[in-house]
Simulated scan of single mutants.
Amino acid sequence: MSGPTELTPAPDADGIDRRGLLECMTWAGTGALWTLAGGLPQAIALDKAVAAQAPAQPFTFLQISDSHIGFDKPANPDALDTLREAIDRIKALPSKPAFMIHTGDISHLSKDKEFDDAEKLIQDAGLPVFYVPGEHDLLDDEQGKSYLARFGGKAKGAGWYSFDLNGVHYIGLVNVVNLKAGGLGALGADQLQWLEQDVAGLSSSAPIVVFAHIPLWTIAPEWGWGTADSAQALALLRRFGSVTVLNGHIHQVMQKVEGNVAFHTARSTAFPQPAPGTAASPGPLKVPAGDLRKYLGVATVDFVRVNQPLAIIDKPLAG
């Protein structure tokens, strides 16, 4: 299942594997572990989390990002292989997540074969998948026709949509249309108007998860690592008690908390990029071959309906 598709709950009404948070946390060595409990973010030590009693009814999903299938430069001569490794680790999880999101740059050059290879491999995880595009997915002659044909489903405009599952409202945004090299992302008036209407009827107590490719907070404007009109989108979400924003694009983990909004960027499954201020420009960062997997990762997100804060634990594919 791809794009903004509707999830069908299992016979137990919510489709949740109830073997508990304990098993999910023991897997954290292969990716980032999140526990969404509707509170403000607070990191907790893994040993304390694993030792704690497993809360009831955990709800888990995954985030992967920036697969760049078709990339074959020295930073990673085989991006398909490292994506395969990530999918194999997902398949080996002791508890099956409910679904997976991909926060863009599925392909490197928007070629049909790149999309086909990526989709086939990602589907091998056996999970529903929800996509938003990165700028590398909109390089075809019609600015995203190939992407939308495969992953657009019932999306609006350039691919934005929302869905609800297990008491959480998910919003997939697109901020890479007409993106200029090194320029900031943008949502645009149409999408902002849709977002306002989308959240208008929600209770302020509803947990919100937003995912888009380019970060919705300004990290490095000189590199285009930010979204020009993100403040307008975030203003629409300010009344909600718990908002989590997941992004890709920068190929490294960065986190920020601003009021009730927690921002988190994901590692790539393909190659790292330099941290701001450490290089003249962004782009594929070549590291020793034996170190590459230290910079690649997968994020696991757990929502648990108990009075516990959000816990964020980041681990790369290796280590």
Rank of each mutant, 00 (worst) to 15 (best):
A118Y: 04
K120D: 05
G297A: 01
E196V: 04
G144N: 12
I171G: 02
N175S: 09
F99G: 02
V257F: 04
V199H: 07
Q143D: 15
G157D: 06
T227P: 03
G134W: 07
G152K: 11
Q193W: 01
L138P: 08
K120E: 13
E258S: 13
N247Y: 01
L184I: 05
T244G: 00
A280Q: 14
D141Q: 10
L237N: 03
F263C: 04
V245D: 12
P288I: 05
D164L: 01
S162L: 06
D198L: 04
S2M: 08
G29N: 14
D66V: 11
Q57G: 00
K111V: 09
T300V: 11
P309F: 10
N175V: 10
W225P: 06
H251K: 10
P133C: 06
L21Y: 10
D198P: 02
S205W: 02
A262T: 15
Q252R: 08
V257W: 10
S146D: 15
V261P: 04
R239Y: 03
V50N: 00
L139M: 14
D302Q: 15
D88R: 09
S204Y: 07
Q42F: 07
Q143C: 04
G15M: 07
R267I: 04
A262K: 14
V253L: 02
W160M: 03
I208T: 00
L83H: 05
M100D: 03
T227W: 07
A318K: 14
Q193Y: 03
I214F: 00
